[in-house]
Design a protein around this nucleic acid. Structure first.
Lengths: 224, 224
DNA sequence: GTCTATAGATGGATAGAC
DNA sequence: GTCTATCCATCTATAGAC
C-alpha cells in the first residue's frame, strides 16, 4: 500500500510497466522477447511490494499488459517466475565488482567508501533485494541468495578492514569491527529506498574507526 | 441445492453469555480448551513460518484442530486474526519492562546486560517478532508495530549509553554509539532463534565501548 | 506468439441446526 | 460454542483456436 514503486524499470522498452500494453515490437522484429521481459518486470515490482504469495499471476499479467496464459507459456509455474528473477537479476552479480577501498590506514574513510559503493550497487537491484529479504525462510528459492548476500556483505567489510588496518591491530579487533559495520550495512539495506550514505552509516564508520584505532591495552580484549 | 429446506425449527439457543465454563476436556484430547486461543496459537506459528498470505484459514483450522467456520465465528475476517495477534500478543509489552543497566561507566558490560534482557524478552515473543519483521511493508497492520519496535530498541540503547557515560563524552559520540549497537541488536533479532547473547553482540559491545571511551580529540569528530 | 475459454482446486465467508 | 453444508470469488494451470 505504501508507495514504493519508484524507478528500476530495467526494461529496455522504457515503458512504465503499469498498463497500456505495448503490443508492437519496438525494433520492428518479432515482439516475442519483450513480453517475457515485461512479465519479469511486473513480477519483480509486485513481488517486492506485496510479497510473492500475495501476488497472483493475474495481477502480474495485468501489470505487464499481457494475458495470464502468456505467463504460463514462458514459465511453467509461478515459482519459475521467481526462480528466473533470482537467476537472471539476482544479487550475485550486484556486489561482484565492488572494489576494496585503499585509504592507507583511514578506516572511517574506507568504510564510507565501501558503503557508498554497496549502496550504489544495491540501488540497481533494490526490488530483487527486497524480495530476497522478505521471502527468505518462507520461499526456499530465496534462502541461498539471502545467505550468499550476507556472506558477501560480511566478506567485503572484512577485506576492507584488513586492507586498511593491515597488521596495525589485533585480528580480534578487526573481526569485531567488521562484524559491527556489516550489521549497520544490513540495516541500511533493510530500509529501502537506498539513497546514498545514511547518517547511521557515517556514525558507525566513526565508531568502528575509533575502536580499531584504540590500543587494545587501553581496555579489555575484544571477544574472540 | 436440495437438502436445504428440511427442518424448520427455529431454535432460539438462548445461552448464558457469560463464559463461566472452563470447558476443559477431562481427557486432554482436542477437547475444548479455549478454541480461540488454539486458533491464535496456530495462526501465530503458521504466519511466522510461512507468512501471512501463504497461510490459509484451512491450515490454521487443521493445525488448531477445529473447523474453518469456527475461525470465522471468533474473527470476522482473516485479517482480524492478525490484528488480534498483534494486539494481544504484540511487541509493545515485550520490551516494556526492560531495565536500563547500571554499571557506573562500564559501557561494554552495560550493553551486554541490555542485550541479554532484550534477547530474553524477545524469545517469548519470537514468532510475533518474526511476523512483524516479515510482513512489514506488505501487511499494513504490521507497519506500526514494526516502527514502534524499532523506536523502542533504539530508545533503550540510547538510554543505556546516556546512563552509563553520562557527561563523560560528547552527545554526538553517544548518539553514534547507540545507533551502531542498535543495528547489531536488530541483526540478532532478524536471525531467529534467539539463544542468548550472540558473538556478534559481544564483539560490537566491545567496539562501542572502545569508541565511546576514546577521547574525541584523538581523531575527527563523529558525524552529527 | 498470442489469444479465448475453461478446467480443477482452493480461497474466504455465511446460514442455520444442535 | 461447535458443527454441517453451501456460496461465490479467485487462483493456478491446461487445451486448443488463430
Amino acid at each position: 500500500m505504501s508507495a514504493r514503486d519508484r524507478g528500476q524499470g530495467g526494461a529496455p522498452t522504457g515503458r512504465d510497466p503499469g498498463r497500456s500494453a505495448p503490443l508492437t515490437s519496438p525494433f520492428g522484429g518479432k515482439g516475442a522477447r519483450d513480453s517475457r521481459t515485461l512479465i519479469l518486470d511486473s513480477a519483480q515490482r509486485l513481488f517486492a511490494e506485496f510479497g510473492y504469495s500475495a501476488t497472483s499471476t493475474m495481477r502480474i499479467a495485468e501489470a505487464a499488459g499481457v494475458t495470464r496464459t502468456l505467463i504460463f507459456h514462458y514459465f511453467p509455474t509461478k515459482q519459475a517466475i521467481l526462480a528466473a528473477l533470482l537467476d537472471e537479476r539476482g544479487l550475485r552479480d550486484a556486489l561482484a565488482d565492488v572494489d576494496v577501498p585503499q585509504t592507507h590506514g583511514d578506516l572511517q574513510a574506507a568504510l564510507l567508501m565501501l558503503a557508498e559503493q554497496i549502496h550504489h550497487r544495491l540501488q540497481l537491484s533494490e526490488q530483487v533485494l527486497q524480495i530476497v529479504l522478505h521471502e527468505r525462510s518462507c520461499q526456499p528459492l530465496t534462502e541461498r541468495p539471502y545467505v550468499e548476500f550476507m556472506e558477501r556483505l560480511e566478506s567485503l567489510v572484512q577485506d576492507t578492514v584488513a586492507e586498511t588496518l593491515g597488521d596495525r591491530t589485533t585480528k580480534a579487533t578487526m573481526q569485531a569491527t567488521a562484524s559491527t559495520f556489516a550489521a549497520v550495512l544490513l540495516r541500511d539495506a533493510l530500509q529501502a529506498p537506498l539513497t546514498g550514505i545514511s547518517r547511521d552509516c557515517e556514525q558507525s564508520a566513526y565508531v568502528c574507526a575509533c575502536a580499531a584505532g584504540t590500543d587494545p591495552s587501553w581496555t579489555r580484549e575484544p571477544p574472540t
